[in-house]
Amino acid sequence: MNPEPLRATKSAHRSRGDALLKSAVAAAAAGIVILLFFLGVELVYNSRLSLVTYGFGFLVGTTWDPVHEVFGALPFIFGTVLTSALALLIGLPVSLGVAIFLSERAKERRLIGPALGSLVELLAAVPSVIYGLWGLFFLAPAMKNYVEGPLHAYLGFLPIFGTTPIGTDVLTAGVILAIMIIPTVSAVSRDILNAVPNSQREAMYSLGATDWEVTRKAVLPYARSGIFGATILGLGRAVGETMAVTMVIGNAPTISASLFSEGYTLTALIVNQFNETTSPLYASAMVEIGLVLFGLALAINLFARTLIWRMTRASRYRV
């Protein structure tokens, strides 16, 4: 028996180590929250001049005239919303197909599944500016000659195909955005589909359903809110995407029904004019453009995260 005395000094030293580690890493975690908060505050503070001058009119004004200091952001909001909507329209079906392939089909073909998954993920690794360069020199001419030309020739009576195709336009921006959001949307959707309990599939198979029926009637309905979340996440990506869009959209602040006309987005406006401001009001209006983008991105991300978080958390308890 050796009742070794329990040394208080040493134990105090140890719990100090624990407390020190905890407060250091908690400070880092708190830093992330403070960062985002501070980001919002800085944007509001530095756009105060524009906020006070234009009020709500900033969001609905259609004229952007720095020379006469008339600042209306609607053309840019329109461009951002339109290109993002196009991106979803084109990108979502493709992403869903990829997700279904990777989670429901590729399991049997073990080799091709992971390889294809990696390829699609590599799309996300390509920098935005390279999409822009490629979009400007290859995609835009190809769109003009092989897609927009024929559409205009045969369906030109429709307002959306009504103007002469130029290549660097809203539709091309939508297509490049679609390519860029496919990796995000398909990867998140694949995870969501993987989280669908197998009992759901087996129940449908036991009723004599085919693979496709199981996917359509059991898996997709079960996963729909999560897939919706993945879609919204893709929307967030599209709204915030900057370089590629700036390089292919033409940068003209117009609101047109035609997809073949040049457009402008919030992000492209920041790229082109943020460093060119000539007066405090102009500078303030540019920060407010950033604030609008911040608000849009924040709302979209909060919404998407909540949806995905709910879905994956629920499945964690069920599995």
């Binding site: 985002l36 980001l39 996440l233 709204v239 920041i270 950033g290 995260r305």
Partner: peptide
Amino acid sequence: FTNDVLAEFPTITLGIF
């Protein structure tokens, strides 16, 4: 949660900040 949001945030707004 904030970290997830920040990861998806438009990087141009970080530039403005």
